[in-house]
Simulated assay, not measured.
Amino acid sequence: MKLFRTFVLAATAAALALGAQAQAPAPIADPAATPATKLLLANLHRLLPRGVMYGHQDDLAYGIAQAGQMWKGDANRSDVKSTAGAYPAVFGWELGHLELDSARNLDAVPFAKIRSYVQQAYAMGAVNTISWHLDNPHNGKTAWDTARTVPFILPGGPDHAKYVARLDRLAAFLGSLKGPKGEAIPVIFRPFHEHTGSWFWWGKKECTPAEFTALWRFTVDYLHNQKKLHNLIIAYSASDFADEADYLERYPGDAYADVLGFDDYVNGKDPAKFQPGMARKLALLTSISKAHGKLPALTEVGYDGVPDPTWWTKTMLPLLKQYPVSYALTWRNGDPVHFFTAYPGQASAADFKQFFQDKQTIFANRLGPLRLYTKPI
């Protein structure tokens, strides 16, 4: 805890020094964005001083029953709601294998169900964020393949047409996300995430900064200009990073991103070192976001199995109160061994409910139906 306080003091001083340079929220990266998409982003900026939205990946699709057995596809079921009493404010979804024209994503969730879950989350006034672990378009291997790929799929490359065909499938799905009046549902789209690591084919050791930014800009321009998708809020999402220069080394520019975030997990780290490490990165993120007028977010976070019964209020909550971010998305409850949020009877369930009850955390019950999409908050 002493180490965490040291980081807090240093980070607070840095944030104050940067305060004079902070900008007002920048305009959305897509000038042709739908009114609801522009309003959502503006409202997320307005909501930022009021608290952090809690998110969960695949929350409506499956989870863990009290007895340690999985549930799958139960109508309106949610481990978050079962534990805390309300749905998350942010729902995460995955589109990997959409590019293969598969009926199910890489986690076996049907894309037709994902579409209906997006619509359900939108109807309750929550926010949807979408990631895409697309298979390697150069050699057909998984997203976790680390063969050099990006130069082959850029314009002029031998596999560029393959990549464009995959973008066409992605665009068709994103364009099919419609509300009850046929309106396009705004979503936060998070491509090529964790690019500062080297476990995906778009990673730091797998392409140069120039190649990565060229791929990012082509992708965003193609979706906006060629496919006429104007319901996208674009998220730039790193993994670990040493400093501001490292974080921004592959940044495509303010015209190509709306949300700045990073992913971080306890995993095999010493849990005692997780909090000060997160404090350092959150301090950098909030400072960089202010300087660029972008929305800061903890785009993925979690402690596999959540074995610490007070992790939510003693580790996460102090961080989120000290460093305001728009949302913090915990990863999926994939099976009874690997899961990232509480469920009824789990060791941290009581603490998670206290986390939910804190005035600084925002779940769907505090948003109201379509409020973020229809009027300034």
Rank of each mutant, 00 (worst) to 15 (best):
K2I: 13
K2W: 11
T6D: 15
T6N: 14
L9V: 13
A14F: 11
L16R: 03
L18G: 14
L18K: 15
G19V: 07
P25E: 00
I28N: 08
L40S: 07
L41W: 02
H45R: 06
H45Q: 04
R46A: 15
L47W: 09
L48M: 12
R50Q: 11
G51F: 01
K72I: 06
Y87R: 11
P88Y: 01
A89P: 04
F91V: 07
W93H: 08
E94A: 12
L95I: 12
L98C: 12
N105K: 02
A108R: 13
V109K: 03
V109A: 00
V109E: 02
A121V: 10
A123C: 07
A123Q: 10
M124L: 08
N136I: 03
N139V: 07
G140H: 01
A143W: 05
D145S: 06
D145E: 08
T146K: 03
T146S: 01
R148L: 13
T149V: 07
L170I: 07
G175N: 08
G175C: 10
K178M: 00
E183Q: 13
T196S: 13
S198D: 14
K204M: 00
K205C: 14
P209N: 00
P209K: 03
A210S: 06
L215T: 01
Y222D: 04
Q226R: 13
Q226D: 12
H230C: 02
N231R: 04
N231P: 01
S239Y: 15
E249K: 14
E249S: 11
P252N: 01
A255F: 11
D258T: 02
L260C: 08
D263T: 06
D264Y: 13
K269N: 13
D270F: 06
M278W: 10
T286H: 08
T286K: 04
K290Q: 14
P296L: 06
E300R: 10
T313H: 09
K314F: 07
M316Y: 15
Y323K: 07
T330E: 01
T330I: 14
D335Y: 06
A342G: 10
A342T: 10
A350T: 14
T361H: 04
T361M: 12
L367D: 05
I377D: 02
